[in-house]
Design a protein around this nucleic acid. Structure first.
Lengths: 231, 231
DNA sequence: TCGTTATTCCACTAAACCATGGATTACTGG
DNA sequence: CCAGTAATCCATGGTTTAGTGGAATAACGA
């Protein structure tokens, strides 16, 4: 094997990581794992995939070194292999957004932005930044609301945030102080949950704003994170 | 199309970028493009690929938004779409290196590190960092040597560096002051050229060190870059 | 207008990949 | 040791991708 062959072998190794990132479904799995570890079945459910398919995708990610596993009783928990993987995932989205106009279209379509006649459409220019939030939280003038599924909240959330998964939000409006501004966040830049939640809250006459970042971005910025069920 | 379909559509867009990075040959092309723009034929030559194949790969990169094209007379010049693409490329290598042990093996095999009995094997612990170099260059105590092909040097190099492509190095040793330390650099962390050059120089009794970074890393650190033929 | 040159497009083959369902393995708890 | 559960492995069929050589374009220069 000459130089050429050795060079190809090296680059083929790098390509293994690229290949792992080259499937929408696998990226969805990474997106979920960025919120915290999960079992295979739970991932299959959340990503709307068959069990065998999910397992196969996870194997691919594992061979690429992007995830690691941990056994607990009968279940196997998958987890991102490190913060660098989250950075990589984040960067791929940034690059796609920057250079592919179709991404912006797909984003708007998915998040329900600018759909004519939809009450509760969100004006993105009015969103709050993490810096703003840290100031407000200091002053205690806002309620911070985490609308992700319970276990993702438990795995890590913004200190002081209240946990109400979107599905339960309609029934639990009474838990929110009606006079306070509510700042809602979810998984990340391309997650629907906060958009949905802001829609519901505004239709109920509450003042709600979306945080311009989700747990993914929050963590990557090294901002403070609490875990466990204590608010 | 429901939410699910829209979500898949969005992630499939992100995956387009991943797919583009999922081929060793395409990564080699990106590696070359990170040194500056090039024509299709020149890329085909350098990457040891057929012309049609190269063109097809470049189309894939273009559809993913990673490269842009510029026409000049009869040639088409390809170029990375932005610095974010170089970052993405760099990060994929960092992640692969961090989590896949096979990468280290392939790297050593390709760069010829630790091969028993090879004279001129490089000790990586003795390499110079960019910070070191900036200090030495200030003091004028070292010769900085760029061993990449001429046109890559022209497209951008470390200020004050001398250009001698590895192929010509054996014949041009006389141009180097024999009493000065020579610091050699090339494309980046996984490029052979500097390793080869250090070997040649040491065998000729000169004091040579490899710079612990190539043009790729140098640029990403926003360190100063000169272009054109003036040294 | 007519070659020339650089690149892309096309048709085709071989290989790799994705999803799926059923069989198999690995561990747990009685 | 046996039953039960969670995950992986395997065989399959349908789709996409990589490489190749030859035809088609597009811009230039006489």
């Amino acid at each position: 094997m000459g130089d050429r062959g050795k060079k190809s072998a090296l680059f083929e190794q790098f390509a293994l990581v690229g290949k792992a990132l080259g499937s929408g479904k696998r990226l969805e799995l990474i997106d979920l794992l960025a919120q915290g570890e999960r079992t295979v079945e739970s991932l299959a459910d959340a990503a709307d995939l068959g069990l065998s398919t999910t397992s196969a995708h996870l194997q691919t990610l594992k061979r690429a070194g992007l995830v690691i596993t941990r056994r607990e009783r009968t279940r196997i928990h998958y987890e991102l292999a490190g913060e660098d993987v989250a950075w990589l995932y984040s960067l791929i989205r940034v690059v796609a957004q920057a250079h592919l106009s179709e991404v912006e279209q797909a984003r708007r379509a998915y998040l329900g932005i600018d759909e004519p006649g939809t009450a509760g459409t969100v004006d993105e220019r009015q969103e709050m930044t993490p810096e703003d939030l840290l100031v407000c939280a200091e002053a205690g003038t806002v309620t911070v609301l985490d609308v992700r599924p319970r276990h993702e909240y438990t795995a890590g959330h913004i200190p002081g945030a209240l946990s109400i998964p979107v599905g339960e939000l309609g029934d639990r409006l009474s838990e929110l102080a009606p006079d306070r501004e509510i700042v809602v966040y979810c998984r990340g830049a391309y997650c629907v949950l906060a958009y949905e939640a802001v829609g519901i809250l505004r239709q109920s006459g509450l003042r709600a704003t979306r945080l311009n970042a989700g747990m993914l971005e929050w963590r990557l910025e090294n901002l403070p994170v609490s875990s466990g069920t204590a608010a």
